[in-house]
């Protein structure tokens, strides 16, 4: 099954299409890891069938946006310094 993701943004402009973005997203897949975050490189699209995974968006104070996106997670990015891993 395709993955469900969620992202928090202050402005929908942060989700530019047609280029690689670096985003902090959380998984909405059911199970005990739901809502855990990861930092990723990804591409998003307002066309829902462009990529397999879905991305929903929340604004600054948790409001759910009615704009829906599809997303392709390219790879995970490790921001945390290696000495803490």
């Amino acid at each position: 099954m395709a993955n469900q993701w969620e992202v928090f943004v202050m402005d929908l402009g942060e989700l530019a299409e047609g280029k690689e973005l670096e985003l902090t997203i959380r998984t909405l897949n059911p199970g005990i890891h739901k809502y855990t975050y990861q930092r990723v490189k990804a591409e998003v699209s307002g066309t829902l069938d462009k990529f397999a995974d879905r991305l929903q968006v929340r604004m600054g104070r948790g409001q759910l946006s009615d704009r829906k996106f599809s997303i392709r997670v390219i790879e995970q990015v490790q921001r945390m310094p290696a000495r803490y891993l």
Partner: peptide, 18 residues
Amino acid sequence: YKVEEGPFGEYTGYRTSP
């Protein structure tokens, strides 16, 4: 090193802090 936190429902009765 810091990661993101919030927003969260707070004692004031709002989600205020960004």
